[in-house]
Computed example of a mutant assay.
Amino acid sequence: MIELTRLNGSIFVLNADLVETVETTPDTVILLSNGHRYVVREPMEEVTKRILAFRRRVVDHREFSSS
């Protein structure tokens, strides 16, 4: 899960595994594989950075758990 901010300032968490696309139009729009669409304050680069960090934590946890 990653934490993001809606345009109205409310903070929410998003299941990063469902992200299909992230685009700038000029707002950052996230499309999920279930068809839901979110517009957030964070720039596309920041959303991508958070998704990659989330995936690294998952992989690191799996490697640690299997040892």
Rank of each mutant, 00 (worst) to 15 (best):
H61N: 14
H36Q: 14
F54P: 00
L7T: 09
R56V: 04
H36A: 11
L31R: 13
L31V: 07
M44P: 01
T24Y: 10
E20L: 06
P43K: 10
T48K: 12
T24Q: 14
L4D: 05
R37K: 12
S67G: 15
L18Y: 06
D27V: 06
V13D: 14
S66M: 14
A53L: 05
V40F: 00
A16E: 08
V58C: 07
P26C: 09
L14S: 02
L32R: 01
D17Y: 07
E23G: 09
L18R: 07
R50S: 03
R57T: 10
H61Y: 13
L18K: 09
Y38V: 00
V39C: 06
V39E: 14
H36T: 10
Y38I: 00
E46L: 08
M1D: 13
L32V: 00
L18H: 06
F64H: 15
M44S: 12
S67T: 15
S65G: 13
V29P: 00
V59H: 08
N34Q: 05
F54V: 02
K49T: 10
N34C: 04
H36F: 06
S65Q: 15
T5C: 06
V58T: 09
V29E: 04
E20T: 05
L4W: 03
L14V: 00
T21P: 02
V29R: 01
V47F: 00
T25L: 13
S33Q: 12
E20F: 03
V59A: 12
R57D: 12
I51P: 00
V39A: 09
T21K: 07
R6D: 09
R57G: 11
R50K: 09
I11V: 11
L18F: 05
R55E: 11
V29K: 01
A16V: 02
H61S: 15
S66A: 15
G9W: 01
E46A: 12
P26I: 06
D27N: 15
A16G: 06
E45Y: 08
M44E: 12
T28S: 07
E20K: 07
S65L: 14
T21G: 05
V29H: 01
R62E: 14
V58K: 09
G35H: 05
V47H: 03
D27M: 07
S65P: 06
T24I: 11
I51E: 04
T25P: 05
M1V: 06
K49N: 11
T5E: 09
V13N: 15
E20D: 13
E20S: 10
I2F: 00
E42F: 01
L14C: 02
V22K: 02
H36V: 04
E42H: 04
N15Q: 08
E3C: 09
K49D: 12
L32G: 03
V13A: 15
A16H: 05
V47L: 01
T24N: 15
E63P: 05
F54N: 10
S65I: 08
R41E: 13
T5P: 01
V58E: 13
M1H: 10
L7W: 04
V58I: 09
N8V: 02
R6M: 07
